[in-house]
């Protein structure tokens, strides 16, 4: 075997030690360079020759800091690391479920939070939906300096040409007393495939135990996760019961047009949303002892 000839054009993988060095490289390589996080998305297609800037060696990106009122997740943390770190935090259970339910165990050990949020081609990111509901903010390093954005804005911004040379550094979520985040996902099998639809819900409660300050995000239904403002308004002030959840969701269902795909037709993604809202609300009630 002539191994030396195995790959006609060899690839270069750079392993910078700091986020700053990575961004510098990104600037230098221009259109030649691509970021490589966990690799679980890029490696599915044969990698083209060129330069890859691997983030695996950047320790600062892997940190997960859990404070009283704030959670900071390094973009290089894996899904598995995140799920483990959040284990037992009732208010963020939905985020732990999103991180711990995506794909399968071996992929969760490799796929990173940052990679999941940066990949524009991936509509079924559990984390994008859960973090949207958590009203997360992202911190980006760009050649022009550090930039902070709401995740909702970032998801649009990452598709623009301005986003070309940025590095997602970390994601921050504020923790507010009495607020709980839940995540309901619908894979076609019990697990192991990407959900065809998902609903994330964050809310507090008023004195009567009704939903307050509701935030709802929907993932996988359209090409990008987004919030569901009309439902947020309708759900606010409702008792956390199944029938209310379904009624409210049904009333606002027309705001989503399901994405067609080989796995399910578009209408299906839309039609299962009321059930997913009901499941998310049920989880929320259960976590608050209101079963």
């Amino acid at each position: 075997m002539h191994n030396a000839e195995r790959w006609a054009d060899r690839t270069t993988i750079h392993l910078p030690a700091t986020a700053g060095a990575a961004v510098k490289l990104l600037g230098e390589l221009g259109s030649e360079g691509r970021l490589l996080a966990g690799g679980t998305w890029l490696m599915r297609a044969p990698m083209t020759s060129g330069h890859y800037i691997a983030l695996a060696g950047i320790a600062e990106l892997r940190q997960i800091e859990i404070g009283q009122d704030r959670l900071r997740i390094g973009a290089g943390a894996s899904h598995a690391e995140l799920a483990l770190a959040l284990d037992g935090l009732d208010d963020l259970k939905g985020l732990a479920d999103a991180a711990g339910g995506a794909a399968n165990p071996a992929i969760r050990r490799r796929a990173t939070v940052g990679g999941n949020l940066c990949t524009t081609a991936f509509a079924a990111s559990d984390l994008a939906s859960a973090l949207l509901a958590a009203e997360a903010e992202v911190t980006l390093i760009t050649p022009a300096g550090t930039l902070r954005q709401e995740l909702a804005i970032y998801l649009d911004w990452r598709r623009t040409s301005a986003a070309q040379h940025h590095l997602l550094q970390h994601v921050e979520v504020s923790r507010r007393a009495g607020r709980r985040l839940c995540h309901a996902r619908l894979p076609l099998r019990r697990a192991g495939d990407y959900p065809v639809a998902m609903v994330s819900l964050a809310a507090g409660s008023d004195r009567q135990g009704r939903l307050a300050d509701v935030v709802v995000a929907v993932g996988a239904v359209e090409s990008q996760a987004r919030r569901w403002p009309a439902l947020e308004r309708t759900l606010t002030g409702q008792l956390p019961c199944r029938s209310a959840a379904i009624t409210c969701a049904q009333a606002n269902l027309c705001q989503f047009a399901g994405r067609e795909g080989p796995e399910v037709p578009g209408w299906y993604r839309q039609q299962v949303l009321p059930e997913l809202v009901a499941r998310a609300v049920a989880q929320w009630a259960k976590a608050g002892g209101q079963e």
Binding site: L188, R190, A191, G192, D193, Y194, P262
Partner: peptide, 28 residues
């Protein structure tokens, strides 16, 4: 229950791997 092959407009299968062609897993 799970395994579905559909044809694209050019007559090729739309399912191209274990991700889109779903065979039963242990939990199923």
């Amino acid at each position: 229950l799970h395994e579905e092959v559909t044809l694209a407009e050019d007559g090729a299968f739309r399912q191209a791997g274990f991700g889109s062609y779903r065979i039963p897993l242990a939990q199923d």
